[in-house]
Amino acid sequence: MGYKKYYTNKIIWYLLTLVIAVVLNFILPRLMPGDPVSAIAARAVNGMTDSTAIQAVYEDYAEKFGINLPMSTQFAIFIKNAVRGDFGVSFSQYPRTVSNIIASSVWWTVCLQLPAILLGWILGNVLGAVSAYKKGIFDKGVLPVFLFMSNVPAFGMATVLLYVFSLKLGMAPSSGGYGFDLIPTASITFFRSVLAHYQLPFWSVVLITIGGQAIGMRSMSIYELNADYVKYSRFMGIKDRKIVGYVFRNAMLPQITGLAMSIGTMIGGALVAEIIFSYPGLGTTLLAAVKGRDYPLISACTLIITIMVLLANLIVELIYGVIDPRIKAAQQD
């Protein structure tokens, strides 16, 4: 029954984190001097001369956004609306609602980044393990190349791939999530177009993820390969293949925690890479929101990204509990 306690603890902890993240999302913009609402109102009255009209606009905005209410009431309204999925109306893409914009972009991001980060992580771990065990060309040749690549920022890798494969070789389309002449339907042409547009953003995330994961896995594998139990097993005459299995299973564990901890950073980088390809995901939406000073959209974007990262972390930690038997043992004490 040890898992139950572990899971409840984890879920409670993440719920608490979520609450604090929401509070931060709400309070940070309001703590700063020059609240966003008056900035928006200032733009609206730009050019007006009649002072009573200006005041009326300010008051109208203040009332619409509820900034004249006490902070606690504002927060209650914010939470109530957020739970219902109501983030208000977008300024820059009026009259679309923010939730509508988010709903149309969030799946692009999830479907792009989740597989890309996972594949990068898996390939990185395989490369790390192989270069620790086999050494030779993997350790001295392949790994350093990927290590250098992992230092290229995601948007940098995106532009390099764009230049080489789209502009020079013409092998892939340069921007968008699907052909500009198509409307999203369930047809094969549309699917093909999506797949073609998917390649460059996908590989730019995968390529930069591999190196960082590989070097971590390599260190862990070397550490484990030198451990006493490996030597003991060798003396016992256990087959090498079986020992290697043990070694890499042990070395994997910190890598899983590592994945959980770095997911936030990776998503941040990959969001910027989306911008290069004008991929219709959250990154591009965020850029448009910042450019259009669309405060409700920025706030909703950051909230949804935080929730995604928290969810991804929680899932990784729950899986970790199943894989690492020590967790179960620790909870049973």
Binding site: T17, L24, P29, G264, L286, V290, I305, V309
Partner: peptide, 13 residues
């Protein structure tokens, strides 16, 4: 766990 990139965006904006 809360991505620092998000905090950066919020504060900078």
């Amino acid at each position: 766990v809360i991505p620092s990139f998000i905090l950066l965006i919020l504060i900078s904006y």
